[in-house]
Design a protein around this nucleic acid. Sequence first.
DNA 1: CTCTTATATAAGCGTTGACTTTTATAAGCG
DNA 2: CGCTTATAAAAGTCAACGCTTATATAAGAG
Lengths: 137, 137
Amino acid sequence: MHAFDALGDPVRRRILELLSHGEQTSGALTSVIRAEFGISQPAVSQHLRVLRESGLTSVRAEGTRRLYAVEPAPLREVDAWLERFRGFWEQRLDALGTELARGKRERRLGRRHDGGDAHHASHHAAHDGRTDEEERP
Amino acid sequence: MHAFDALGDPVRRRILELLSHGEQTSGALTSVIRAEFGISQPAVSQHLRVLRESGLTSVRAEGTRRLYAVEPAPLREVDAWLERFRGFWEQRLDALGTELARGKRERRLGRRHDGGDAHHASHHAAHDGRTDEEERP
DNA sequence: CTCTTATATAAGCGTTGACTTTTATAAGCG
DNA sequence: CGCTTATAAAAGTCAACGCTTATATAAGAG
């Protein structure tokens, strides 16, 4: 399943938003989603399965808990796909900054960098607000 | 319909790719898509309708032709949604480029850096590079 | 071992979505 | 005008999706 398909569902997008702050247990995710969307535990579990199978998350067992985390690769692909449209809204950016940023980003992505690069993401625990407000039928 | 839903279909993504080079008539799009996906003219027309109705394209009539063009707003929204995940793969961008790019791109969001907690090792060899080639069932 | 908690799977069902073929609309052209 | 080209809409079909209830698995607590 292509990442875009998985991202088509608001529940799954919301789950990823929740995971963007760091890993979460299935249970924690489930209670938030249940509260926000009013769906059952198995429904959430099925969404988690889709996320797993589309490579958007990884899971790690800890006792009886399952800890889900964002797996960035497919999102990076989506980001790359969007690249060709950035010109549509970045046209007005001044040339120097754009060139710099773009050049750097691309150069980096085109190169292997797995060697000693054991550093981890850092999350700004800014606001928790959802940006996405949708209802489902 | 949310942009992400519309983007879930490979035909529609392909149409947008074709439009990323500039506006195209329905006919031109249709013949490419027919060739690549083997679907009928009405099928393409229906995809065009979805793209129109989700705001991803605009249309302009010229005689009997319809000229489609990318309408960037929803894509920009998608891009904004992705923003929160960029940290997962851009963590190592050096400061200058990052500041320039980010500051410019989302000046209004008032982003700040932090040296936060650590999870989410992402360790994958580079791969891919190709855009999109999929089959449909 | 039994009961409970955490999570996933199975089976079934209604709805949606992506097609198809057929038909409509409307502009150009002889 | 009638014929053709360009495009959309209508109606029907079939599979995929998202949900539900019911059930399985597996770890922990008592």
